[in-house]
Simulated scan of single mutants.
Amino acid sequence: MNIAYSPCPNDTFVFHAWAAGLVPGAPKLNVTYADIDITNGLAAEGAGPEVLKISYAALPWVLERYKLLPCGGALGRGCGPLLLTGGGTGAIRRPEELSRRRVAVPSERSTAYLLFRLWAASHVPGGVGEIVVMPFHEIMPAVRDGIIDAGLVIHEARFTYSAYGLHMLVDLGSWWETDTGLPIPLGAIIARRDLDAGAVSGWIRASLRYAWDHPEASQDYVLSHAQELSPQVAKSHIDLYVNDFTMELGDSGYNAISSLLDRAADEGLVPWIDPGLLR
């Protein structure tokens, strides 16, 4: 079975056992490691693998061909994207200063960017200037070096941005949780609709159970793909992004997804979807 997910520690932790052939009855995986912007595009084109990790924000463009799986993704609390600015004199310190500035984002169809647009609509008079899409691991150096004015970061950047001398302008996850009371939907696992979604979900859950039961087993695999992260940062990343929602979205998870996509559709940022396609 072909699958695409990111090299980030949460994904490699969840899928290690399946990728290593440790899940009884599961088909062998042919893994493509790809940035979220790439997987979002593959899913939208309908030319990607049978199973992919994408942004929840990209779901409106893919649900006719792919089914959202109730497990394996990233959704939680205290784990949202951050908007960072430079740390030097004259750097941006207030939301209104983002007007007509250059902001880097990891994908135009990422949940991070969607949350940013919902926040900016009420906090940045006149809107921001140019949006620049770049791989997330390039964003912090670009902000530090003054190539861009602000950067939207995800994943382990939450633990490492201070090492770049950067300033957090807003925690968009905290803003979302305060505004809605709901967890933050970040990354979804989807499977082609001609697959047995129940079977795929079962293999993902079995892989996750193995990872939780044998956390040391995946360490080498996780660190080999973690883009120079220290073992402690990788562990912090996993502890934050792999949680009960990864095993089962549940009603709270589905409510968060619906709320995000409905609010975005109200603002004209994404197409409306048939609620029946979410489950």
Rank of each mutant, 00 (worst) to 15 (best):
F245M: 06
P106F: 05
L166S: 11
S230N: 04
G173A: 07
G146S: 10
N2K: 14
G173P: 08
S258N: 12
Y33G: 04
G41C: 09
F15N: 05
T246N: 01
L69T: 13
G41W: 09
L240T: 08
I3Q: 02
G21N: 08
I238W: 03
R205Q: 12
V132K: 02
V242G: 06
A47F: 15
V242F: 01
V170K: 06
I36P: 11
L22T: 11
V132I: 02
G276A: 15
P27V: 00
P9I: 01
A188M: 07
R93T: 12
S174D: 14
L59T: 02
G126L: 08
R94M: 03
Y210C: 03
L172V: 10
A197H: 13
V143S: 04
W119R: 10
G88F: 14
A120F: 05
H237E: 13
L84H: 02
S99R: 13
V51K: 00
W119Q: 11
V222S: 04
D213S: 06
L277R: 07
E216S: 10
L42T: 14
H167F: 10
S201L: 06
T85Q: 05
L115M: 05
P271W: 10
P141W: 00
A121Y: 13
W176K: 06
Y221L: 05
P183D: 14
G253H: 08
F159M: 09
M140G: 07
A265Q: 05
Y66R: 03
D171L: 03
G72C: 08
A191Y: 04
A157F: 06
A121E: 13
S218T: 01
R65F: 04
V62N: 07
L261N: 03
V270G: 00
A142W: 04
H237R: 12
F159C: 05
N30S: 09
Y66M: 03
L240P: 06
L240A: 12
E156Q: 15
L68Y: 01
A43I: 10
K235T: 00
V270N: 02
A264T: 02
A74H: 10
F116Y: 06
A226I: 01
P215I: 05
S174Y: 13
D266M: 08
W61P: 09
I54E: 06
V170M: 08
G25I: 00
P125G: 03
V233G: 03
R117L: 13
A188K: 15
A157P: 09
G250H: 04
I147Q: 12
S218G: 05
F116E: 02
L118R: 04
P275Q: 14
W176T: 09
R205M: 03
D274Q: 11
L98P: 08
G21T: 09
S224W: 07
H16M: 02
H16Q: 00
A43S: 12
E45D: 15
T180R: 11
F136D: 15
H16I: 02
S162H: 10
V242Q: 08
E156N: 14
D179F: 13
A44K: 12
L29R: 02
V31E: 00
G181E: 05
E228P: 11
P135W: 09
E45N: 15
